[in-house]
Amino acid sequence: MKHLSRYRRHRAAAPLLLIIALLGIGTTFNVASATIKSTPNTFSRSAAIDEGKQIFLKGCSSCHGLNAEGGAIAPSLIGVGAASVDFQVGTGRMPMADMSTQAARKAPVYDARETAALAAYVASLAPGPAIPGDEVLNYERDGNTAEGGELFRNNCAMCHNFAGQGGALTQGKYAPTLMGVEPKYIYEALITGPQSMPVFSDKTLTPEEKLSVIKWIKAAEAEPNLGGATMGRIGPVTEGLLTWVLGLGLLIAVAVWLTTKAR
């Protein structure tokens, strides 16, 4: 340490520290995204409904009411359908951990079997959108990337940003990032309209169109960084920051070196 402290007042100390700090900032740009696997359900329907009801009474009814009729702080779940339950519980948004402005994606509380049971129970209350099967979700076959991009920019980009990175809504709410979200959940969100998101009916945004949107999102997700580090794909704000910090920072560091007398 003594050795190091000798260099504390060295001319290069400040620029060097700056560079180290910059590298530190750079690494924090790495955002990890969790992936969640779901397993197919293979158990009898009525048994599932019963099991789902038990889970519901234990884990959900305090807010959503004993018969899922809703309460002061939570909406009614009658008629929201299995897709809604699968989305909310499968992505960990429900049960909500706290009463924040918006339920965030987190590790799910219930496993695939329990989620399926809950979905079956809620679906049994009144008809609603069903969970799309793998056959429906074959976006690779049924979707069109370019058309999906056009639809995305018309229907999704205003909230989720041009590259699906998410964006701000009013009063601290936000549209989450779409990167790393499973096709099933994107599809379910489109047909059920969770939280702030509106519903995109099958008549106005057809199932094929929805698959095209998913295909485009997956293409954007898989797209390598064609022009270098992306800095979040969130537009000119990070670009401006980098201009000042790294661009002008490096230039001033060189200018300081250039104008000091050699020893």
């Binding site: 991009g149 056009e150 920019r153 018309n154 980009a157 205003m158 909230c159 989720h160 940003n161 041009f162 590259a163 998410g166 964006g167 701000a168 549209a175 954007a220 797209e223 960084n225 064609l226 022009g227 270098g228 580090a229 992306t230 800095m231 794909r233 537009g235 000119p236 670009e239 980098l242 790294l246």
Partner: peptide
């Protein structure tokens, strides 16, 4: 460092917007 990745923005259409 990537700057202004125009291919991600898509062509201009007055009816569209990005967050």
């Amino acid at each position: 460092a990537s700057i202004n990745p125009i291919w991600l923005y898509g062509p201009y259409n007055p009816g569209q917007i990005s967050a």
